[in-house]
Design a protein around this nucleic acid. Structure first.
Lengths: 131, 131
DNA sequence: ATCCTTGCAAATGATTTGCAAGAGT
DNA sequence: ACTCTTGCAAATCATTTGCAAGGAT
């Protein structure tokens, strides 16, 4: 718990028990949407409100503690910000897996008029479990 | 108009004037979200309802005439399905640009347990106009 | 003629806001 | 103590549904 406590402080956020709870669930799940996260966090803090969850998600996103993962046909997912990697998204069960990926290998028409900040790669298909 | 008329038929959809209107706006705009699309389509068909727009978008997506583009922190965008390409997304103005991209060049740890169907690449940053 | 699509209104679902009480530093 | 966060309720915004009338083949 000291762990998440520090993470929050380092990102200029107060370490509330709700936030620590959110982060511990996210660490456990890897990728999670708001609905599922709310279900989980309520088992830790039965009185937590959805408004609090949304407020915290937005704050942690803004402070770069969390990262948004947008996948087609699915609710937006969130993960704890990690080093660069790609995602595999199962179109059947919706699960998202991290994939080691070296962005240096990406060959594309460099365009100096565009200030590149981030690159996202998402592989869609059917995962092992669903085949 | 014969153009979109045929496109619709080829995808097993009736060619209604509302659908043709939606497609012509999309062709013109390239990438557009529901809200903006509704604003535009209403100038062509003032009495069109949002429900009709949503129903048609879902049908055309299902029949692969349209493709969904999910970008972070923005409303979902839609485009007319085209040959494979990547996207550049401006974090400032929200504009999305198509980028020629050869997916053959993508090097990643192939995993036979995952049945790959589609790969999405999104470059985020600041576009020329916003710099 | 038949089946699909439209437009409307209402229902549902998702996200945001304001505010008073409580928690963190 | 001071400021930020929480929980609640209500407001707003986004998407979906059912149904009767109209349109496409």
């Amino acid at each position: 718990m000291k762990n998440f406590d520090m993470m929050l402080r380092e990102h200029d956020l107060k370490a509330t028990k709700q936030r620590i709870g959110i982060l511990s669930i996210m660490q456990d799940k890897g990728h999670i949407n708001i609905e599922d996260l709310y279900g989980k966090i309520k088992t830790l803090f039965p009185s937590i409100s959805l408004a609090t969850l949304y407020k915290n998600m937005h704050l942690m996103l803004k402070n770069n503690l969390l990262t948004e993962v947008s996948v087609k046909n699915s609710k937006t997912l969130y993960e704890i910000t990690k080093d660069s990697h790609a995602h595999m998204h199962c179109e059947n069960c919706g699960e998202v897996y991290d994939v080691d990926f070296n962005f240096e290998n990406l060959i594309y028409p460099k365009d100096d008029s565009f200030e590149l900040k981030d690159t996202q790669v998402i592989f869609s298909g059917i995962c092992k479990n669903c085949k």
